[in-house]
């Protein structure tokens, strides 16, 4: 049901863009106003959200330690999973952000039997989620980088290189980028999991289905433009360059309506991004269980709101209460009962 709501929402967006730019001839609005506004919302929203997080204090250093701590010299520290210095923590973060290390950890233990029928413990990985999440995110990144060619003149060598590698298989005309297929596979898997796995269906919300369906639709509309509508890329680049340099020109009539669908969906994604779970992209860098070294026995960490008025029940109060029996038991005292009296 939640997935259907999300699908309806995305289809509504497609219809609006098709009708708006196609039938109602509001190309200018859909080419300039919508993406421009969406981009502004994205940037401002993203920055505001990150600032909102960053200005909140981190009162305690609470890394989740995933390996041996730094202790005695002869005990080997697991520096990547239990860092105690800045560079080690940076390494942990890099592995986390670039390779999704925590998801990779998702191993399962299995009891198997060897040939002699003795039980042995074996490990199988439950790495599908990791693999498809990685495919999805990296495809997304490559696709974003490839699209940068529309925003930059001249096109940097780096982008050309990415395009070359991405199309290295040289199949179909126009040449198919592998990432187009991979992102469909990745997003498709992530969506299928949510729909088919009862456990995930139970925990999933509209907030989970909507972005996945939206991204799938963006990918599909993009592929439609390239492989079926075979849109006029140079005309589109003119429009995009106009948008980025604030030199707005009349929208050429040669641009297929699919472009407006695509750009409306992208705009929706941009505008939706800062208010959604997609902010995990920014949040992962600030997560206090990952981005701090496990070093508070070595170095002081300051809590800005540490309340100096919270004090332990004092020894004086304790001795006052129990002085007599302590004295009788021969425990050392600050004041003997006579002195206290």
């Amino acid at each position: 049901m939640k997935a259907i709501y999300s699908l309806i929402l995305v289809l509504a967006l497609v219809v609006i863009a098709t009708l708006g730019a196609g039938a109602a001839k509001m190309q200018t609005i859909f080419a300039y106003c919508v993406p421009g506004t969406a981009f502004a919302i994205f940037v401002i929203g993203f920055v505001a959200k990150v600032i909102g997080w960053a200005k909140r204090p981190v009162p305690f250093r609470i890394p989740t330690t995933g390996g041996q701590q730094q202790s005695l010299d002869w005990i080997v520290q697991n520096k990547w999973d239990n860092p105690s210095t800045g560079p080690q923590t940076a390494m942990r973060m890099l592995l986390e952000v670039l390779t999704f290390r925590s998801l990779f950890r998702n191993t399962k233990v299995l009891l198997k039997h060897d040939d002699g029928k003795n039980p042995i413990v074996a490990y199988v990985s439950a790495k599908w989620l990791w693999l498809f999440a990685l495919l999805f995110h990296y495809s997304f990144l490559v696709i974003v980088v490839r699209h940068m060619r529309l925003f930059l003149q001249p096109v940097p060598q780096f982008i050309v290189a990415v395009e070359f590698v991405d199309s290295v298989l040289q199949i179909y005309t126009p040449i198919v980028y592998q990432t187009n297929l991979l992102i469909l596979a990745g997003a498709g898997f992530l969506l299928a999991r949510r729909l088919l796995d009862a456990k995930l269906r139970y925990i999933s919300l509209v907030n989970d289905y909507f972005p996945l369906i939206l991204i799938l639709s963006i990918a599909l509309s993009g592929m439609y433009m390239r492989y079926i509508a075979k849109v006029d890329v140079m005309a589109i680049k003119d429009v995009v360059m106009g948008l980025t340099t604030f030199k707005f020109k009349a929208v050429p009539a040669s641009i297929d309506v699919s472009f407006f669908v695509h750009i409306s969906l992208v705009s929706t994604l941009l505008a939706y991004f800062p208010f959604s779970k997609l902010m995990h992209f920014g949040g992962v860098f600030l997560s206090p269980t990952r981005n701090l070294p496990n070093d508070t026995r070595m170095h002081h960490h300051e809590n800005p709101w540490n309340n100096p008025d919270i004090k332990p029940h004092s020894y004086e109060a304790y001795e006052d209460e129990f002085r007599e029996p302590m004295f009788e038991a021969g425990l050392p005292l600050e004041k003997t009962p006579e002195e206290a009296a």
Binding site: P57, V58, P59, S102, L103, N106, L200, S204, D208, K277
Partner: peptide, 23 residues
């Protein structure tokens, strides 16, 4: 507490419900 703990605020905002923790 959302203002005193970055951890709480971030943990409220960024869960994608991937299910890795579920079992």
């Amino acid at each position: 507490r959302l203002d005193k703990y970055r951890s709480l605020k971030i943990f409220m905002d960024i869960c994608v419900r991937c299910g890795a923790c579920a079992d």
